[in-house]
Design a protein around this nucleic acid. Structure first.
Length: 266
DNA sequence: GTCCCGACAC
DNA sequence: GTGTCTGGAC
């Protein structure tokens, strides 16, 4: 139906090109004016270094084990979307009528499938009722959808609407920006404690023309090199610019400190 | 056994 | 801020 076509077109490159004339609204135009706070030293060099590392990674497909590539969260997610697509389930009217168990089975590999299947049905219903089968086009309306938080709302604004309201900060962007000391709490200067805090701090100085690119860049980097548990600092080309390099390489025993654990026996 | 992607209830 | 939802990687 026409409705499903509209929704799918939303994510096609052609549409992005057509929508590229839309001027980003929101803050001032960062490309010409000075940032409100000092930019971290060498931030451009750091970003360039990460870009280079990412381009090496993408070159030969066989440089990365197939098992590993196939088991990544991204691969599983893409697989799930493909299966949804093949079953016509990117259209709200189809999603609304299909059995929830069917959706669960299709998205199973991505995890949290019970709640996601439930939210998919709720969102499909809302999109049909309030948005003529399309998705909301403002940040505020996206955030009202069940299961859609700041990370996903900004991602949709960036990718689907080409209307940059903010940076899409996920756990990788959050972690890496703190390791680089690119973000901090306003008064104390300590590291930020949530992705939302990171987003606000990062937006104070990062030029707006990097706001969209930073997410895929740091996500890829965070999955392969700057991993949450044991970052591969030895193979990182910008370790000489990172204040956290080689400081988290020991066994992650400290993370298991969960309140004493003084259970008498055992 | 421990940690993990993000949203949300508590 | 912390637990919960998930199966899987380590």
């Amino acid at each position: 139906m026409g409705r499903s076509m509209d929704l799918q077109k939303r994510f096609l490159p052609g549409r992005l090109k057509a929508a590229s004339s839309i001027t980003p609204v929101g803050n001032e135009d960062n490309s010409s004016s000075m940032p409100e706070v000092d930019q971290p030293a060498n931030w451009k060099e750091v970003l360039d270094g990460i870009r280079k590392m990412r381009s090496f990674e993408d070159a030969p497909v066989d440089s990365m084990g197939c098992e590993k590539a196939g088991s990544s969260f991204l691969q599983r997610s893409l697989g799930a979307i493909q299966r949804l697509h093949q079953n016509g389930m990117l259209a709200p009217d189809v999603i609304e009528n299909v059995d929830e168990e069917t959706i669960k089975k299709l998205i199973y590999p991505v995890g949290f499938y019970t709640r996601k299947a439930c939210n998919m049905k709720k969102i499909a219903k809302i999109c049909l009722k309030k948005y003529e089968g399309d998705i909301p086009s403002t940040l505020e309306e996206l955030l009202l959808l069940p299961g859609i938080g700041p990370k996903m709302a900004h991602l949709v604004m960036n990718v689907a609407w080409n209307n940059v309201q903010g940076i899409c900060v996920d756990t990788h962007v959050h972690r890496i920006c703190n390791r680089l000391r690119w973000v901090s709490k306003p008064v104390t200067g300590k590291e930020t404690s949530s992705p939302e805090e990171t987003r606000k701090s990062l937006q104070l100085w990062l030029p707006k023309d990097e706001w969209v690119a930073i997410n895929p860049l740091l996500v890829g980097f965070g999955q392969t090199v700057c991993t949450p548990l044991r970052p591969r600092c030895e193979m990182c080309s910008i370790n000489h610019l990172c204040p956290s390099a080689f400081k988290e390489t020991s066994s992650p025993v400290s993370r298991t400190k969960k309140a004493g654990r003084v259970k008498g026996s055992v």
